[in-house]
Amino acid sequence: METIREKKYLSDGLSEAFNNHVTRDDLSEVQKETGVSVSTLIAIRKQEQFVTERSETAVVELAKRALKNASSTEKEARRSLKSLKSFLDCI
């Protein structure tokens, strides 16, 4: 189980998930909600800056958005796989 700890960098797994599933819009919206700058969020995501007490709430919000985006991507991938298999079965 991965956790977020203050004064620690994100784990490699969380960093990868954020890089793959957090959009620019997500970063902007979280900045507006929490007051943590987009540049700080990007630095945390890239493991260039560690999580602080102030940024922890923003990181949790990014994790929620990354999960939602990853779930949507997974559903799209399943639909695509079904279509591709159906197409290839007809050949």
Rank of each mutant, 00 (worst) to 15 (best):
E2D: 11
R5E: 15
R5S: 15
E6Y: 04
K7R: 09
K7A: 09
K7M: 07
K7V: 05
K8P: 04
K8G: 05
K8L: 10
Y9M: 07
L10H: 02
S11I: 06
D12K: 15
G13D: 12
S15H: 03
S15T: 04
E16V: 11
E16D: 13
E16M: 10
E16Q: 12
F18T: 01
N20Q: 13
H21S: 09
H21V: 07
H21D: 11
H21G: 01
H21A: 09
V22F: 02
V22H: 00
V22Y: 02
T23N: 14
T23L: 11
R24C: 10
R24G: 13
D25E: 15
D25G: 06
D25Y: 08
D26E: 12
L27R: 02
S28P: 00
E29Q: 15
E29K: 11
E29H: 08
E29G: 03
V30A: 07
V30C: 05
K32I: 05
K32N: 10
E33I: 03
E33L: 06
T34E: 10
G35M: 02
V36T: 05
V38S: 01
V38A: 02
V38G: 00
S39L: 01
S39P: 00
A43H: 05
A43K: 09
Q47C: 11
E48Y: 06
E48D: 06
E48T: 02
E48P: 00
E48R: 10
Q49W: 07
Q49C: 08
F50K: 00
F50V: 03
F50W: 05
F50D: 03
E53W: 07
S55A: 07
A58M: 04
V59R: 01
V59Y: 01
V59S: 01
L62R: 02
L62V: 03
L62A: 04
A63S: 14
A63Q: 14
R65P: 01
R65A: 05
A66F: 08
A66E: 09
A66M: 12
L67V: 13
K68F: 12
K68N: 11
K68I: 12
K68S: 13
K68L: 13
N69H: 08
N69P: 09
N69C: 08
A70Q: 15
A70L: 14
S71G: 14
E74S: 12
E74M: 12
K75L: 10
E76Q: 11
A77C: 14
R78W: 06
R78G: 00
R79S: 13
S80E: 13
S80C: 11
S80W: 12
S80P: 04
L81H: 05
L81I: 06
L81M: 06
K82N: 07
S83D: 08
L84A: 07
L84Q: 08
K85A: 04
K85F: 05
S86Y: 06
D89R: 11
D89F: 08
C90W: 05
I91C: 15
I91P: 06
